[in-house]
């Protein structure tokens, strides 16, 4: 119960986000399904922010967590950069008149 009391704002926020997320892409044409999937994938790379937040708190001599965190940051960055670059390349194919 404490948890719900503390996080009621976030809970509202999540519910609104669900509806906005559905609303925003509800009219996407089939041709754009793959780029949209790729783009959404890149956006989910925002997990990198979390990885950085944790990394900042790890003590300097905690080698296990430093290693895990390094890998996590690397993976998150790979998700973001790869995701957006691939989406960009896919969308190039859509440019009119070429």
């Amino acid at each position: 119960m404490d948890f719900i009391n503390q996080h009621i704002q976030e809970i509202y926020f999540v519910i609104f986000c669900v509806f906005i997320g559905i609303e925003v892409i509800s009219n996407v044409p089939a041709i754009l399904h793959t780029p949209l999937m790729s783009g959404a994938n890149a956006i989910s790379g925002v997990i990198l922010v979390g990885a950085i937040i944790v990394m900042l708190r790890v003590p300097e001599d905690d080698y296990l967590n430093l290693t895990l965190g390094g890998i996590a940051v690397f993976l998150g960055t790979l998700n973001i950069s790869g995701g957006f670059f691939v989406t960009g390349r896919m969308l190039k194919m859509f440019s009119p008149k070429k």
């Binding site: 926020f13 986000c17 509806f19 997320g21 559905i22 925003v24 949209l36 989910s44 922010v49």
Partner: peptide, 12 residues
């Protein structure tokens, strides 16, 4: 930002 990004991706 993380919640919103994650939920958008999840819902979408």
């Amino acid at each position: 930002a993380m919640i919103a990004g994650g939920i958008f991706v999840g819902a979408a």
